[in-house]
Design a protein around this nucleic acid. Structure first.
Lengths: 224, 224
DNA sequence: GGAATGCTTCGATTAATATCGAACCATGAA
DNA sequence: TTCATGGTTCGATATTAATCGAAGCATTCC
């Protein structure tokens, strides 16, 4: 019914987390390739391709072809719009943009649907050290022994493998500057911690607060 | 995944057409009830209720309860954000809006319940030039002589003033980049044109099509 | 000429959510 | 009281669109 430009269409483009992640990745002004952007968003190339086509159609990005690469860069108006979105979101979600100053946030916090912060990194490195997961370049996978161990915790690796979503993914932790575990397994591990009552989400925040027994159990499971 | 405020969540709130329509309806600064907003968005009350709860949680609107009504108003940051979205969308969708694709739409179209486009702007400016309405900042009102003239057309200004809805409101026309007349009077004038058979709505479109006699009458009434 | 890399298209599946009907609650009016 | 109105909650449905696997194009490297 309304007149004027269709703002809902515009907003919907940013409203998808995958696209938003790609846009944020472009916010430093550099031009990135489609592959780099798909990695930044944690999606496959073919999914990213379709997203990027829509972002281009919506004039969020401009494309430059160079050899067999395609470089995407934010347009000027898109940058301004994203700034505005950050400003609004920072106000309404009262989160600081320049990194978690709150020690609780640095310790353990939600990153989309898995755990980030010190504990997230610790868990990831512990799993790697015990060879329950192995990292090969960008790819991360669960080893047979890891599958055993995780199923002992009640995580159905076979079931998770059937999902469209990648089982394992490494995610650069903003506060720790090291990677933590994302993907279906990352989400499942967080669910496990919450389900068992070892930790709980604090309302109106991304902080994950551990109980005292939760701290102990976490140290037993993933401690150095 | 990156840290900082979650802009995709924010954008997703505006990304739904129903919610966007409600937000746009609130952009003139008035507070509207849930029912009015559901009508503006063309959805049922129960659907609107759930949308409005989410908009409130996202700090897009603030609520004031008054009797059995609930009045919703845009927050200041939300207004700024929507402005930015309009600006971006106007720039990027300019081709579609200003292109010769659909001249009929640019000539005269429905804007919720009143007329926008070239004819809408023309009517508004004609009424102002003849001092039938006067504009004082944001406020628009009918003058005594305007009241006389409009009642001669069969529009009951006294009755319209009793409505809770503002009698006159100016609405920025996105194709003309000038204002046209909204509010109860704007709606009544459109009704008049349709009732008299001067024009009719085209199905499945916002286009208002004038008959040949309607064109003539419109020029007599509001021509330069 | 292959072979490898970067990206796209197509089809199918799945997860998310917008939507409405019906019932319900709260307030104000008769 | 009873009725009417405005708003919410719940459950079920349906549509959207995000996603991936597989296959295909295009370019560059060997």
């Amino acid at each position: 019914m309304k007149e004027g430009p269709d703002i809902s269409q515009t907003a919907a483009l940013v409203g998808d987390p995958a696209r938003a992640n790609m846009l944020v990745a472009l916010m430093d002004g550099r031009a990135l390739t489609a592959s780099e952007l798909s990695a930044a968003a944690g999606i496959t190339q073919q999914t990213a391709s379709s997203h990027l086509a829509r972002l281009e159609a919506g004039r969020f990005v401009i494309v430059r072809k160079q050899g067999r690469h395609k470089y995407f860069a934010l347009t000027e108006p898109a940058g301004e719009l994203l700034e505005g979105l950050f400003r609004f979101s920072a106000e309404t979600q009262q989160k600081r943009l320049l990194g978690p100053k709150d020690p609780a946030l640095r310790k353990a916090r939600i990153c989309y649907d898995h755990m980030a912060g010190d504990y997230g990194v610790q868990m990831f490195e512990n799993l790697k050290a015990r060879r329950f997961i192995c990292e090969d370049g960008d790819a991360v996978d669960v080893t047979p022994s890891g599958e055993n161990w995780l199923e002992g915790l009640g995580i159905d690796i076979g079931g998770l493998r059937k999902l469209r979503r990648p089982l394992c993914r490494s995610c650069l932790d903003w506060s720790e500057r090291r990677s933590h575990l994302a993907g279906a397994l990352g989400a499942s591990l967080l669910d496990l911690l919450l389900d068992k009552g070892y930790a709980r989400r604090m309302p109106e925040s991304r902080v994950i607060a551990f109980t005292s027994t939760g701290e102990r159990r976490f140290a037993e499971l993933f401690g150095v």
